[in-house]
Amino acid sequence: MQYEGVLKKMQTEIGKPIQYYLVFESDFLNLNQILNKELTVNFIKHQCLNCGNDRPIFRQGFCKSCFFEIPSAGDWIMRPELSTAHLNQADRDLDYEKRVQLQPHIVYLANSSNVKVGVTRKTQVPTRWIDQGAHEALEIVEAPNRYLAGITEVALKNYVGDKTNWRKMLTNTVADESLVEWRNKLKQYIPEEASQYFVENNTETHLDFPVLQYPEKVKSLNLSKTPNYQGVLKGIKGQYLIFEDNTVFNVRSNEGCYVGLTIS
């Protein structure tokens, strides 16, 4: 079987285990169905996810000029506390920013390599947790806009991490934690403006990833350095493909790469 197209982050479907899909312009591939099969990845060219041109990818699947121009790559994406749509102030495109920022946002705790705090739109639950490779997650604040969620995350980062150790996540060296206990401990540090949106009496969401074999020591596949790779697919976790030889491939960090895939 052969597939060809530009890489975008894998789409997911909650289940036991989670189902993963690579979606191309005119085709899609359910990756769960090719576990234990050999997958060949061949880099063909770059294709910016915005303009479609064959230019080097700068960040998030976009070429450099698009990254610094389009509204979906503004600084507030990575730093929600910089959101200003609630003040009627534009960053790059106020209409776009209002659509994204002025909707319910969740501040959550997730355990992927350690307990961390994060922010996502309510519509992205549980997708965001799956993308981070979290075994368990818990909503702690449901804010009406991105700004309030962002300042809550900033406040809580003083007491809990906000980064995932991707190596620990992929080798599955993760200790079980009580996120309910963490939530109750962190409640006192939520900013006053967001305290009324605290979520209590909810339970943890547990996630089951399709992994047959975890790597002992990970080595990362970078298509710009290794444009052709072949290996047996052993698992999918977060946005990573895990291969039998301990190679891991971050699909999300390779967005904008146009590739050919062969399954044998």
Rank of each mutant, 00 (worst) to 15 (best):
L39W: 02
L138C: 12
N32F: 10
N32R: 12
N114E: 15
R121C: 12
I130D: 02
E13I: 08
E69L: 15
C66S: 02
T40V: 09
W76V: 06
L82W: 08
D27C: 00
P17W: 00
I34Q: 08
Y96Q: 09
R55L: 11
I14P: 07
Q33V: 13
L87H: 02
Q60C: 07
S65H: 01
I57V: 04
Q60K: 09
K37L: 13
L31T: 12
L109F: 00
D54P: 02
I57Q: 02
L87T: 09
F68V: 14
N36D: 15
F62A: 08
R55A: 14
I18H: 08
F68D: 12
H86A: 10
L7I: 01
M78T: 15
M78G: 10
A90K: 14
T12H: 07
P56L: 03
Q101Y: 02
K116I: 14
L31I: 14
P71G: 04
L7F: 12
L22F: 01
N32W: 11
I140R: 12
L7Q: 10
Y21H: 09
D27N: 15
G52W: 05
D75G: 02
D54E: 10
E69M: 09
V100R: 06
I140M: 00
A134I: 00
V23F: 01
T127S: 11
L138V: 04
L102M: 08
F67R: 07
E4Y: 01
D75N: 05
G61H: 10
L49Q: 03
I140H: 01
G74Y: 01
K8V: 05
G61D: 03
Q89L: 14
L39G: 15
R128N: 08
R121H: 10
E38R: 15
Q2C: 09
Y20Q: 06
Y20P: 15
Q89D: 03
M1W: 04
Q33I: 10
N50W: 09
S26R: 13
P126Q: 03
R92P: 12
P71D: 04
T84N: 14
V141C: 13
L138N: 02
N30R: 11
P71T: 05
G118T: 10
D54N: 12
N32V: 02
L138M: 05
Q11N: 11
V119M: 04
Q60M: 09
S83M: 06
P17Q: 00
S112T: 13
Y108V: 00
P80C: 13
